[in-house]
Amino acid sequence: MKILVCVKQVVDSESVIAIAPSGSWIAEEGLVFRMNRFDEYAVEESLVIRDTFPGSVVTALSVGPARVESTVRRAIEMGADRGVRVPLGEGGYASPMAVASLAAAHARDEGYDLILCGAMAEDDMHAQVGPLLAEMLGIPSASSAIALKTADDASAVRVEREIEGGSREILELSLPALVAVQPGINRPRYPSLSNVLRAKGQPVPEEPHAADESANGIERLARLRLPERSSRCEMLEGSSAEKAEKLLALLAAKSLI
């Protein structure tokens, strides 16, 4: 099987974020970039499927500025066979529509049997690129996949999608298809030493494509801002010991303890 896995580079979510002076994105200097966690599950799933279908090839794709090459490389370190980067912008906000149309430009002639994406990106939280890409390629898709099984003859995938309240919707998609996976579908592996060494020597070619400006409207990020603290939250002040005492007193006053 030919499998494409789409990976995004994001700022590590533990970082304390500040808005850039332009107001158009976060201040990125000094922050640590890594693979979007949701995408790690997509990479793992692609490797699991490759292992059950000998001869399969996994390609990792990222759309973005030069720095995202390290995230493609991370996918190769995890085990992807090859990587490719389609250039877009210099960082900051990227419309999912633009990202998906560039990914589609790459995928259109490659003949992938299965495309895997993460359910959403930790930074913009749009959850759009997967379903957009599928529609642009004219293939069926399912999002929020928590279980995935490929038919023995590689003609279809059986997907369990998570829906509200803990139940699942089950469907079968004929291949080629796209599946956006949920965390929990597997346990992403850590890169093995041999794959890390292999990734070092492997080029990540840059594959420019023209954005398709004709079709769909592109939204614009007017500004990014920090939410106002809700006034109802009482932040406890003082030393750790004082906070512990205050908290216990508050709970006691409400007869909770």
């Binding site: 919707e169 079709a215 769909n216």
Partner: peptide, 30 residues
């Protein structure tokens, strides 16, 4: 923006030649 809504909304946007904005919590005019 339900499990169904976010599954089909982006694809519907492509079919309608539309843009797509998800998980909206407020709206305003500036």
């Amino acid at each position: 923006h339900s499990a169904r809504g976010y599954d089909f909304a982006p694809g519907l946007a492509v079919r309608l030649g539309a843009g797509c904005v998800t998980a909206i919590e407020a709206l305003s005019e500036r």
